[in-house]
Design a protein around this nucleic acid. Structure first.
Lengths: 226, 226
DNA sequence: CACAGAATGGAATCACCACTCCAGAAAGGG
DNA sequence: CCCTTTCTGGAGTGGTGATTCCATTCTGTG
């Protein structure tokens, strides 16, 4: 989704120019670090674990990154790419209730397939790093902003087409959807059960559907009032 | 809310009987540890920080707790008490839309008052410890279960009174509300702005209101269809 | 008030882990 | 194909932080 992968500057200590081989090594380090840090946690991941998983020597890591925090920043950015990619292609076309419901099914299935262990890659990094410095927090906020944008664009399209009532706010609904997903996954992770995330997403989607101008009798409200 | 504060057994290494003075010291340790671990994070909180903040000597901590994980478990339980207490008395009577909206205002104000820094005490512990062992995860799940119960009871009361439609599910709505709050706070923490948590909570509360049997023209739907 | 168990101080230990150093191999541009 | 720059291996090392030990002082009870 994002060829440059992460930083534009100042994240690496490495020389300005990276050899083809160097780029590959750097990518392997970020990839391995991301896997480990996301599966368990950042604090518990030692540089030596990364070293082994990436198949590099100790000095490599410090050849490409200033220090551990710099590596963590690269991991956050990479995690954002992973999360957004994992939701494609459906995330790019969230402009109908059917697409939104399909997206919901997709993310629920994603969690189910990993036995509800591990949270959202970006969300679990956020929980651990939110108060560990402004640079990490900014990186995380930027990641979520990209995600929110994807959600908002679909809702905005529906809004502009007149499929959502004029008084509906795509921005607010996108935020609510993202929050419902994050909170839902957290509870799902703790209970090892998808019920919380299903409840959270369905409730928010039902709300969105109730703001739909579509005359179809699909909402609970409509069914009730009929 | 909970006099015994946390464990019933096996959390302490301390002798079966605690002196009055011993109880006070133990409480001071848990209290200091909780403050530090919640404000920043668990991994970054050293036993020596706790020692200093609690005004005890190093051996005290190990007199009362097996090891750091055991202390962390006690902190989780204590954090649950703190969170639930901070929402009283409104949390105990969430049996009307007015009460729910008041609760929403209360938790938003709570975040605003701390400049949106730091997440939910229980939520941030959860994000950091969810994959750090089953005992911690169980303790966290238990904490959220207590919270969810409080929310569900209010909604169940409304349901039984007939203020919510028969097809509304208090259990599901309580879960959705808790998830919206957790996800909303996480995003709010990252952005240092209450907008995400307001969006998440309002959207979920609007959904609940739309499941209300109250004839009053208070919902957006009602206003629109009028 | 004696004494057994509990509480305390603080120095010492001990493992662990991020990070450094240096020497040598590969890359790639002119 | 030479020479500069980048890449790599791997053995340190310095600091940190969890945990222990033991001597000493309190507490509460019979």
């Amino acid at each position: 989704m994002n060829a440059r992968d992460d930083d534009s500057a100042a994240l690496s200590r490495a020389p300005a120019r990276l050899t083809r081989k160097g780029q590959a090594t750097r990518a392997r380090i970020v990839d391995a670090a991301a896997r480990l840090m996301i599966e368990t946690n950042v604090a518990g991941t030692r540089t030596d674990d990364v070293r082994e998983a990436a198949g590099v020597s100790a000095s490599q890591i410090y050849h490409y990154f200033e220090d551990k925090p710099a590596l963590v920043r690269a991991v956050i950015s990479h995690a954002t790419d992973l999360v957004l990619e994992a939701q494609q292609p459906v995330l790019g076309q969230l402009d109908s209730m059917a697409a939104l419901r399909a997206w919901r099914d997709h993310v629920v299935e994603l969690q189910r397939s990993r036995q509800c262990a591990g949270g959202c890659p970006l969300g679990s990094l956020a929980g651990e790093l939110a108060e560990s410095g402004d640079s990490a927090r900014g990186e995380l906020a930027a990641g979520f902003a990209r995600w929110e944008t994807a959600l908002r664009e679909g809702l905005t399209t529906m809004h502009e087409r007149g499929e959502l009532r004029p008084d509906a706010d795509p921005q607010e609904l996108a935020l609510a959807l993202l929050a419902a997903l994050q909170g839902g996954i957290l509870l799902t992770q703790l209970r090892r059960d998808t019920a919380p995330m299903r409840a959270a997403l369905d409730t928010t989607l039902d709300r969105i559907e109730s703001l739909t101008t579509d005359p179809g009798p699909r909402t609970v409200e409509a069914a009730h009032k009929r």
